[in-house]
Write a protein that binds this DNA or RNA. Structure first.
Length: 468
RNA sequence: GGCGCCGUACCCAAGUGGUAAGGGAGAGGUCUGCAAAACCUUUAUGCAGCGGUUCGAAUCCGCUCGGCGCCUCCA
């Protein structure tokens, strides 16, 4: 089984062949913890999870490292006085450390609810300031820096390949189009490695360094921690598409300036979730969280299923109508699987007939083809609807496919409701009314159940019921 | 202004040279109590528009129209 991924650096499909035997070294950009993750952020973490599960599916072990950015950054172009964590701190009256801890916990709670596997290593930026300082010293020794106005800058003119990842044409960038250019920079794309002369007087997190008391530039943390946990070179670096032009571009420049080696073999980026026809963003205030979806009756896995219906490299339009379609679709899937479990007494078997074998091959091919989850879901649906595949084979396929999909499909039940005496009595009364052809009363009772969120199904074998 | 990407049915969305996956919604049917639920069937001679290449194009090329992103922190 060979997985191919679209490498942003080469803009082409590339087979995954690990540097180290059977282990894939994967670095995924993590959250900045100054607020709740919105569902656009979460789409990207679902993508990373699919990537990781697919690699494991293909037989690799995955060393998955994710940073937690708990040092704040610029809040937005209109705000020049604070960083994001500081701003949140002032708003809530908590310390910056408390803010970071609170939202870190909230983040891990969200990804757990979405069946996203926890990274092998999650590392906080503030625990690795020393690593960053050492890395900056190396970059300085190699002659890629200059200091101006108290800050230490990376000099992109010393790095001819700058911008290759993003296909940047430096001459044509409209610098200063939306934000004032830092006058101290030699080139507009130069970026700060270490701040001592902060324009943020409320900066709360400050460390000693060879360049004076201050704090690190944003991009250095990922270079430093990736190196620390994965080495100078590793297999895959993934994250949101927005990181291509600046963050990842700068990361490559820094790491390569320090080690002389290209740090990453394959760059993989997930596209945006669109909301109201534009990208969802915290600063624009148009963002939804998992909790807000829950308030409207949508479970985290409904959102996961919704995301899996689109390829990770295409923009996905979020609407409640579309989410609702996903919820209904997933619910139907769960009911069918519950019936399949019942039919084979919950006993999967992996002695496959030709048809099962074919579905399996198709599914594997679609996983390997740049993680084509929409196709994988399609395979799953078609297989389930197939009439001449035994239930025990279907169940085995479902179990194996779910290792990639992560939808907890094997937990599917019809959600039978425990009967209390009132419900039993009502069911009996309704059956009696039906026998007497008193359908008005029977429907009245069914209405009562609907109010309780219970759907009655009159089947040949008797009445059964489930939660809606 | 430059760069990157996209435009497929009512909605979400696969498919990137060989004759349109899947889900939701809608329609028809089976069952039934003229019910609900369930189940089955069905729904784009068509892929923004116009040219071109080709035996053959949603898929390749050109132009036009429309949308999104990036050049600023951002998933």
């Amino acid at each position: 089984m060979t997985i191919s991924l679209f490498n942003t650096y080469t803009r082409s499909l590339q087979e995954v062949t690990p540097l180290l035997d059977n282990q894939v070294k994967l670095y995924a950009c993590g959250p900045t913890v100054y607020n709740y993750a919105h569902i656009g952020n979460l789409r990207t973490y679902i993508f990373v999870d699919i990537l990781r599960r697919s690699l494991e599916f293909a037989g690799f072990t995955v060393n998955h490292v994710m940073n937690i950015t708990d040092v704040g950054h610029l809040s937005d172009d209109a705000d020049e006085g604070e960083d994001k964590v500081v701003r949140e701190s002032r708003r809530s009256g908590k310390t910056v450390w408390e803010i970071a801890e609170y939202y870190t916990n909230a983040f891990f709670s969200d990804i757990a609810r979405l069946n996203i596997k926890t990274p092998t290593t999650s590392c906080k930026a503030t625990d690795h300031i020393d690593d960053m300082i050492r890395l900056i010293m190396k970059i300085e020794e190699n002659g890629f820096t200059y200091s101006a106005g108290g800050n230490l800058y990376f000099d992109i003119s010393k790095f001819p390949e700058y911008g290759k990842l993003a296909l940047l044409s430096l001459d044509d960038l409209k610098t200063g189009a939306r934000i004032a250019v830092d006058e101290q920079k030699k080139n507009p794309q130069d970026f700060v490695l270490w701040f001592t002369n902060s324009k943020f007087d409320r900066q709360a997190m400050i460390w000693e360094s060879p360049w004076g008391r201050g704090y690190p530039g944003w991009h250095i943390e990922c270079s430093a921690m990736a190196m620390r946990f994965l080495g100078d070179e590793f297999d895959i670096h993934c994250g949101g598409i927005d990181h291509i032009p600046v963050h990842h571009t700068n990361e490559i420049a820094q790491s390569q300036a320090a080690t002389g080696k290209q740090p990453v073999k394959c760059w993989v980026h997930g596209e945006f979730l669109l909301f109201d026809k534009e990208k969802m963003s915290k600063s624009a205030g148009n963002f939804l969280t998992l909790s807000l979806l829950a308030d409207q009756g949508y479970e985290p896995l409904d959102f996961r299923y919704f995301c899996l219906n689109a390829h990770y490299r295409t923009q996905l339009k979020f609407t409640f109508e579309a989410l609702h379609a996903a919820k209904t679709g997933r619910n139907n899937l769960v009911l069918r699987i519950a019936d399949i479990k019942e039919e084979c007494d919950n006993t999967p078997t992996r002695v496959f007939g030709k048809k099962s074998e074919n579905y399996w091959k198709e599914f594997v091919a679609h996983v390997c083809d740049d993680l084509n989850m929409p196709r994988c879901l399609s395979d799953l649906w078609q297989m389930i609807k197939e009439t001449d595949i035994p239930a025990n084979e279907k169940l085995a396929l479902i179990e194996d496919m779910d290792n990639v999909l992560g939808l907890s499909l094997m937990d599917s039940v019809r959600k039978d409701v425990l009967l209390d005496e009132e419900i039993t009595a009502l069911v009996e009364e309704r059956e009696k009314a039906r026998k007497e052809k008193n359908y008005q009363r029977a429907d009245e009772i069914r209405g009562l159940f609907v109010q309780k969120g219970i759907v009655l199904e009159d089947t040949a074998a008797g009445v059964r019921w489930r939660k809606k």
